[in-house]
């Protein structure tokens, strides 16, 4: 009968691990706080990234097409090169330890800014590629009907480009969601940091890590499902 007892012991110890990792001393609150911060940072960084990305892509496209806005175009290129050429963790530290060194600012906002600025560079390249993938004749047809550049973009190119862009954009957002874990490095209590805090009290990494892994998975799978649904909808709307 001893083997039965061993199995019993095994399950009890797993329960103990779970209890001390999650329930004891309301440790689940760390995970909830981490989840909240991760979602907030990812959500607002995505919005910021789209705003920056669209602006940068339009500046560069307008410059390519009309040869105007030379200085803005140079700045946009520099921005994209710097962001793509340095690690996100470095950008995060520069923004927190250098730019906001002597400013009292909520660290979650620092995270939003850093990840938003980072994502903007990648989003701008995705949008630029999307616009360039549309046949030049579409733009000429728009011009020949008397549309201005901005109206051609808004009514003719962007609605077509968005369909080509969507998969890459979804990919970028999934990457961004996971990358917020880097925020732990400057002490943002997001999911990864939360699991680290718990583990540092229990000296047991199993449940904290497995639980947040599952949470990340559920979120990214949900996100890719959402993007798929939007793709299907866009494809049904047209042709």
């Amino acid at each position: 009968m001893e083997w039965l007892f061993n199995i019993w012991e095994f399950f009890v110890s797993i329960w103990d691990n779970f209890y001390y990792s999650v329930i004891y001393d309301r440790r689940y609150e760390f995970i909830l706080e981490g989840l909240f911060n991760t979602v907030i940072i990812a959500l607002f960084a995505v919005i910021l990234g789209i705003v920056i990305g669209v602006c940068v892509a339009l500046v560069r496209n307008y410059h390519d097409k009309t040869n105007k806005l030379k200085i803005l175009d140079k700045i946009a290129k520099l921005y994209v090169n710097i962001i793509r050429g340095t690690p996100v963790i470095l950008q995060l530290m520069i923004i927190y330890y250098v730019i906001f060194k002597s400013v009292d600012i909520n660290i979650v906002i620092v995270g939003i800014l850093a990840f938003g600025i980072n994502s903007g560079a990648y989003v701008s390249e995705i949008i630029r590629a999307g616009i360039n993938s549309i046949d030049a004749g579409q733009m000429e047809a728009g011009y020949s009907l008397g549309f201005t550049y901005s109206k051609v973009m808004r009514y003719i190119l962007m609605p077509q480009a968005i369909k080509n862009i969507l998969p890459a954009l979804g990919n970028e957002f999934i990457t961004l969601l996971k990358e917020t874990s880097v925020g732990a490095y400057i002490g943002i209590i997001e999911l990864t940091k939360a699991s680290d805090i718990i583990a540092s009290r229990t000296y047991d990494y199993f449940f904290p890590l497995i639980i947040i892994a599952l949470i990340y998975l559920v979120m990214t799978l949900g996100l890719s499902k959402l993007v798929n649904m939007m793709e299907v909808k866009l494809n049904n709307d047209r042709d």
Partner: peptide
């Protein structure tokens, strides 16, 4: 404004595909 008064028809049609 000028182009509103000047239509153009292209070899490749260039209808807006969306």
């Amino acid at each position: 404004k000028i182009r509103q008064k000047m239509g153009m028809v292209f070899q490749q049609f260039n209808l807006f595909s969306h």
